[in-house]
Simulated scan of single mutants.
Amino acid sequence: MTDRDITVTVDGKPETAAAQDRTLLVHWLRDALDKRGPKIGCDTGNCGACTVRWDGALVKSCMVLAVQADGDTVETAAGLSEVDGSLNRVQQCFKDHHALQCGYCTSGMLMTATDFLDSGESVTEETTRRAIKGNICRCTGYHNIVQAIRAAASPEERL
Rank of each mutant, 00 (worst) to 15 (best):
S81F: 13
Y104F: 04
G103V: 01
I40P: 10
I145Y: 03
L29F: 01
R53I: 05
V64A: 07
L58S: 05
N46M: 06
D31T: 15
T106N: 14
P14H: 08
Q147L: 11
N88A: 14
T112Q: 00
P38S: 10
V26S: 10
E121Y: 06
A57Y: 13
C42P: 00
V67T: 01
K133Y: 08
G79I: 08
L110I: 14
G41D: 07
M111C: 06
T127P: 14
S81G: 05
G48S: 02
L25H: 08
T127A: 05
Q20V: 15
T124H: 12
L33H: 08
W54D: 07
G12S: 06
C102H: 14
T124Y: 13
C42T: 02
T124S: 10
K35G: 07
T128L: 01
K60T: 00
A49W: 07
G85D: 08
T76F: 09
Q68K: 04
T128P: 08
K39T: 03
K95L: 15
A113T: 09
A18S: 14
H97C: 13
T44C: 14
L24R: 11
T73M: 04
R30A: 09
Q92C: 13
D21T: 11
Q91D: 05
S81M: 02
S122Q: 09
A78C: 02
N144L: 10
G108A: 04
H143L: 11
V146T: 15
C42G: 00
G45C: 06
A113N: 07
D43V: 00
I136H: 03
L80F: 02
R22H: 15
L58V: 09
T128W: 02
G85E: 03
R36N: 15
D43S: 12
G120W: 09
S61W: 02
R36F: 05
T140H: 09
F116A: 01
L117P: 05
E15G: 09
T73H: 07
D72R: 04
Q91F: 09
I40H: 00
T140F: 12
C137P: 03
M63E: 12
N88Q: 12
E125N: 14
R89H: 15
S122N: 03
H97R: 10
T23V: 11
I40Q: 04
C42M: 00
N135F: 04
R53C: 09
L117T: 06
G71W: 03
M109L: 12
V83R: 02
K95Y: 08
T23I: 10
L29M: 05
S81A: 13
Q92P: 14
E15V: 13
A148G: 06
V83Y: 04
D34M: 06
N46V: 08
T23C: 13
S122D: 07
G120E: 05
F116N: 01
V67K: 01
R130Y: 03
S107D: 00
C47W: 01
L80I: 11
Y104P: 01
G134E: 00
K39I: 00
I145K: 01
A18M: 06
T73V: 12
G79L: 11
G41R: 00
I136L: 08
Q68N: 02
L29P: 04
